[in-house]
Design a protein around this nucleic acid. Structure first.
Lengths: 340, 340
DNA sequence: TTGAAAGCGCTAACAT
DNA sequence: ATGTTAGCGCTTTCAA
């Protein structure tokens, strides 16, 4: 079954063990071309017996094809991205393509490095989060000659194709909904708006919608590191001590929103009577909180699925439609955003 | 800067553009051997100008080395594994190795498939979760002739090397702590104990410790899918309606424990006066709950770091010590496990 | 310091 | 249905 780990096995070993030419062995192992059942059996038995694992490096070099799709995302601990991955994996499971993930930590330089590293393996396609990339990154992707799908965001111009939502519009929608519900004294909490372009766009859309209603944000607070739940709790406390007149808190993500909600409930605030709340993302994880936080679905799994489908489509037909696909997120009012 | 995406660029293109032999171009691009500063400059400029990205497939085939470490884990949505990944990435950042992740969804057949797929890229090492693998998987790893580190668990015999904690002991420790604190009527909630060997071992250790104190679990409930927080809430409610006499609930992970805690606090239970609680994993995410759940650190980041270090050590020195490294998890009593 | 030649292990294309 | 040949794009080795 096994052998002392020495030199890795090659096709030639299988060929010799089975008495069949390397070429035919190769055919059997890839289910290609016509091979008689008898030969097939012989080869399979020999390969299994030896414990042969094909060398994809050699195969890829010879065939000039690599069944890998590079997926480049900022983080894995954001909840959002594992769900995008689920969508991608599901869609690719029916094909012979495999996702390979690279993490950028929201750093453009790291994105560039990861991209370079992945492209050097000559993947069949790239799925990458966001529309903002360094010039060098854009150049690499444009020059790679493979389908590139930018995901999550549609506010901008894709290199090749894009699937996502308009975060600016998402922010506007939530702003409008809050005004329509009758809230007027609004506080905002979120991540530092530097590296996270999508959070920034939501914020811009949000303030824009408020401005149209003649309302301005009265207080705001940003955070960088730490447990989001704990941060939401702390920031909410700090903000309400500073600005007790607020009647609505808009959080840039559900986790800090949940932290805020827990603190408010604990302190006996009437939510949403005295104060309304909303987050963003609709993370499944948070089902099970005392109240359901108002939020907005960011269509993560669908984004992943559609992106993968675009890759496969353009691989089969290079002229398959690219362009921008904008999905429509829906507001979920939960228990914390009610007309008053 | 860029060119219309046609044929991918090769070393030869850079060679021609710079008027330097392919060999010397290769040397420059890999910082190998002595190359004059002038030549170096010429080459670098030409490469950048063209937007050349090296072909690692060809490079790997020629050099017979691949700077990839296969990391095989059951899931990304378990909180636990992203943190292990963090430890691995940190440790590998100082080397020229790169982690590549494969997901098994807790399915042995999928593990086998992923392993086969990854080994066919001839990685420099393997880090894989758990000690339980199919015969074929074990055979592949043994035959690969590369360092293999099994992580998370030490209750069993590693193929090559292992870093983790003893989940059996972890379960025992928690059982003892609960008895010592004076609780006697104990309920258990957790995932279905089929595929998750580590959860099963914790459960076994737990019941063993209770048995030693003459105590038996009075009620138990298992779940398979769904939001862990919501499940914890539902199961806790169901169990306490069924068995109101319980004075302690042991959850097989922090997320369902948190769900239970939220429900109990909401219903006005006195925690830990009337009823104590404990989970497992010490997930950072949950900082920010109304009370701090008793739990046990599973040393995830350290496990990742140590595993990566073992890989690099055995790569530099094939005789570097392998064997089993058992880390010592500590109980964190939080607010929900107090002597009574 | 630079270059030339010979493969790495496989597969495409072409026999047979 | 099976075998033969000629590379894939790099790096190793050896020579200059």
């Amino acid at each position: 079954m096994t052998r002392p780990a020495t030199r890795p096995l090659t096709l030639r070993d299988v060929s010799e063990a089975s008495g069949v030419s390397e070429m035919t062995v190769s055919r059997v192992l890839r289910n290609r071309g016509d091979v008689s059942a008898a030969t097939r059996e012989k080869v399979l038995r020999a390969a299994k017996q030896l414990g042969y694992v094909p060398n994809k490096i050699a195969g890829a070099l010879a065939s000039q094809r690599v069944n890998l799709v590079a997926v480049i995302i900022p983080s894995m601990s954001n909840m959002v991205f594992p769900e995008v991955m689920t969508g991608i994996s599901r869609a690719l499971e029916e094909t012979d393509l495999q996702p390979v993930v690279g993490i950028t930590d929201y750093l453009p330089e790291k994105e560039e490095k990861v991209l370079y590293e992945m492209l050097s393996w000559r993947p069949s396609g790239v799925i990458i989060a966001g529309l903002e990339h360094s010039d060098a990154s854009r150049a690499m992707m444009a020059a790679a000659g493979i389908p590139v799908v930018e995901i999550m965001d549609t506010d901008g111009t894709p290199i090749d194709a894009a699937v996502g939502i308009s975060h600016r519009r998402a922010g506007r929608m939530m702003g409008q909904a809050i005004l329509e519900a009758g809230y007027r004294r609004i506080g905002f909490m979120g991540t530092q708006l530097g590296a996270d372009h999508r959070a920034r766009k939501r914020f811009e859309g949000f303030t824009e919608a408020l401005a149209k209603g003649g309302v301005e944000i009265e207080d705001r607070e940003f955070y960088a590191n730490g447990s989001a739940l704990a941060k939401g709790r702390e920031m909410t406390q700090a903000m309400l001590e500073r600005s007790p007149e607020l009647d609505f808190l808009y959080y840039s993500n559900d986790m800090i929103g949940a932290g805020g909600l827990l603190w408010l409930v604990e302190k006996g605030y009437d939510v949403p009577g005295k104060i309304g709340l909303a987050g963003f993302n609709d993370v499944r994880l948070l089902q099970g909180l005392p109240q359901k936080l108002a939020t907005m679905d960011s269509c993560r799994e669908e984004i992943g699925r559609r992106a993968a489908e675009m890759i496969t489509a353009r691989l089969t037909d290079p002229d398959a439609p690219g362009g921008k696909v904008e999905l429509s997120p829906k507001i979920n009012r939960g228990d914390t955003l009610r007309s008053r």
